[in-house]
Amino acid sequence: MKNTRDNGLSDRRKATADAKKLLLDNYRMAKEAAEPHLEARQAERLALATARDERRAARERAKTEEREQALAAAREAAEAATAADRAEADARLEAETSRISRVIEDEAARKAKRDQRYAERKARQR
């Protein structure tokens, strides 16, 4: 069987134009049918984006608070270490002062005993 229909250039162009028109009409109908759902989807996306931003802000606040607490703890530890060092230095100074005063007192007591013996020896010689 022979193809009785002669597909000329104008027939092919008309078929292409009809196909494009049909595709465009289908697209428009699908777009109009989806419009109510589109607004709902956009509202849902906006709500999700807002919730995501709120969660991100909450995480940032938590991180900032945690960082501040860590800095405060480090400051307190540094202050405690400084106070402990100061107390240790004061204790060492006090111990050194006490030792020096005991040495001086012992030296004075030894001199007093020596002077006493010297005085007793002179008293016996007279």
Rank of each mutant, 00 (worst) to 15 (best):
E79Y: 08
K21I: 00
R92H: 12
Q125H: 13
A40E: 13
D90G: 03
A83P: 07
K113T: 12
A19D: 08
A70Q: 10
A17M: 02
D90N: 12
A89M: 12
R55Y: 12
K2R: 01
E120K: 07
A87Y: 08
A123Q: 12
A58I: 00
D106Q: 03
K20N: 10
L9S: 07
R45F: 15
A70S: 08
A74K: 11
R12E: 10
E120D: 12
R55W: 11
D53I: 01
K2Q: 02
A62E: 13
R102Q: 14
L38P: 01
A77S: 09
A109T: 15
K122R: 11
Y118K: 11
R124Y: 05
R45G: 15
R45L: 15
E65G: 04
A89L: 13
T64P: 01
T16I: 04
R117I: 00
K111G: 03
R52A: 13
R13E: 06
G8S: 11
A30H: 04
A73E: 07
R56Q: 14
A109Q: 15
A80N: 15
E94Q: 10
R67S: 00
A57C: 02
K20P: 01
Q116R: 09
L23C: 00
A78V: 00
E94S: 07
Q42V: 05
N26A: 14
N26F: 12
R41D: 15
D85V: 03
E76N: 06
D25W: 04
K31Y: 09
K31V: 13
E65Y: 03
E105S: 14
L71A: 11
E32F: 08
A77V: 02
A123G: 06
A51P: 01
D6Q: 10
R12H: 07
E44N: 06
A81F: 04
I104Q: 12
T97C: 07
V103A: 15
M1T: 07
A89I: 13
Q116V: 01
D6V: 11
L23H: 01
A87H: 09
L48C: 04
Q69D: 08
R61Y: 10
A89G: 09
D106C: 01
D11I: 15
K20V: 02
T82S: 04
A19C: 04
A51E: 10
A17L: 03
E32N: 13
K111Q: 14
A49G: 03
R86C: 08
A84Y: 02
T82V: 00
R117Q: 04
R52T: 12
D115R: 09
A40S: 09
K113E: 15
E79S: 12
A74C: 08
A51G: 03
A78P: 01
G8K: 09
A123I: 03
L48Q: 10
L46S: 09
E88W: 13
A72Y: 04
A78S: 06
A47E: 07
A17Y: 00
E60R: 12
E35V: 14
K31N: 09
H37K: 10
E107Y: 11
A81L: 06
D25P: 00
